[in-house]
Computed example of a mutant assay.
Amino acid sequence: MHKINLPSRSVKARALLITRLLAVACLLLFVQTARAECTAAMQSSLVSFGDVDLLNPGTLTTQATVTVTCRKSAASGTAQTFQVCLAADGGRGTIHQLNPRYMCPSGALCTTTTANRFAYNMYIDASRSTIWGTTSNVQYRNMLNTSISFFSSEAANTTKSKDLTVYARLITPLPNVPPGQYTASFADGSTAVAFSTGSSCGSLLTATRFRFPFTVSATVVKNCNVNKPNNIDFGTVNPGDTNLAGSTSLGVTCTSSTPYNIGLKPSNNHTAGAGEMLPVTPGGGNTDRIPYQLRSGSGANGTVWGNTATAAQTGNGVGGTGTGLQQNYNIYATVPSADYHYGDYQDTVTVQVNY
């Protein structure tokens, strides 16, 4: 009988392999037991105010849903209840205050020196009176919270979910900010979800925390409002009168930094602002039409104000840039001669603001 001796290095190799397998098994066991029992996620990862018209603000509120999901870690036959608490600070950036919170131009980091900031806040109640806070802020520690319970009859690893509502509101008065998208990012430690078998959100101070990122967003749209000007009244004139002149004032309010161009169009659609006044009461053989000229400057030689303006070109109109406040423009009209039939004459001029 032959005796074969295995090399000692083979025995060592086998022992090393067994040691590695044991290490991997221990690691997998650790990962399985360390996973979170409760997590949270903002639906669509967004709290959106949508389009906001600063000149004609409608609804300044919105709301979003956070879904909390818990996994039963207790064995079948044992009941289990989790107290879940959700916290949020002021958002990513150097502004950590909670009243108010701020959105800044999309892509910009919100700081105290950011030129355009949009104030808002988030609340845990539908009346929007209790600010959603965090334990790190002594004044605002009210958090979204709920409890999720499992019956003893439910098996381990069973999951349940609950929806919580976050309420939000823009802070008035609304700022004069340029059109564009404004956001606030809640990531990199700006949120926390904690759970425990305790009885209140106070356990958030010591419980294991997990993050749930989301973004607050609003899109400021450009717009212009026009105040209807008073009529230009040439008054009562004599047939021999010449060089009649009248004026009125036009008020235009456009969102901040919005370029606009104003055109004036008589009812005859003359592009150079040369209109005609017709008898108010037609008939009696009066077919006269009294010509007039719209101008942006006073007097018979004032600059003509017509209707070739577009959003991109001023043309023979008048242009400006919005500030969020009303800007006033004088409209002048001249009539060369009043040598026409007796009666009242008028015409309608359309103001067109292009932006």
Rank of each mutant, 00 (worst) to 15 (best):
H2T: 15
N5M: 08
N5T: 13
L17C: 01
I18A: 15
L21C: 12
V24L: 15
C26R: 10
L28W: 11
L29E: 07
V31H: 01
Q32F: 15
R35E: 09
T39K: 11
M42L: 15
F49K: 03
D51K: 12
V52E: 04
V52C: 13
P57Q: 06
T59N: 14
T59W: 00
T62E: 04
A64G: 01
V66C: 09
T69P: 04
R71H: 00
A74E: 15
S76Q: 14
T78A: 10
T78G: 04
T81P: 05
F82E: 10
A87L: 02
H96K: 15
N99I: 02
R101K: 13
C104L: 11
C104R: 09
S106D: 12
T112G: 05
N116C: 00
N121K: 04
A126H: 04
W132Q: 01
T134E: 11
T135Q: 15
T135E: 13
S136V: 04
V138I: 14
L144G: 08
N145Y: 07
N145K: 09
T146A: 09
S149G: 09
S152C: 03
S153L: 08
E154R: 01
E154C: 07
T159Q: 09
T159P: 07
L170V: 08
I171M: 11
P178W: 05
P178Y: 01
T183R: 01
A184K: 07
A184W: 03
S185K: 05
F186M: 11
A187Y: 02
S190V: 03
A192Y: 06
T197E: 12
S200N: 09
G202P: 13
S203F: 12
T206R: 04
T206C: 04
R209P: 10
F210Q: 15
R211H: 11
R211F: 03
F212V: 03
F214T: 00
V216W: 00
T219H: 12
V226H: 00
I232H: 03
D233Q: 12
T236K: 12
T236S: 09
V237A: 00
D241F: 09
T242A: 06
T242R: 08
A245L: 14
S247K: 11
T248M: 00
T248C: 03
T248N: 05
G251N: 15
T253P: 05
T253C: 10
T258S: 11
T258L: 08
P259C: 14
Y260G: 04
Y260R: 01
P266M: 05
S267E: 13
G273L: 02
G273Y: 09
A274K: 14
E276L: 15
L278E: 15
G285I: 08
T287M: 04
Y292C: 06
S296K: 14
G297R: 08
S298G: 00
G299T: 03
G306A: 00
G306I: 06
A311R: 11
N316W: 11
V318Q: 06
V318N: 07
L325K: 13
Y329M: 08
Y329T: 06
N330H: 05
I331Q: 02
A333M: 07
P336H: 02
A338K: 01
Y340G: 07
H341A: 14
Q346K: 01
V351Q: 10
Y355C: 05
Y355K: 05
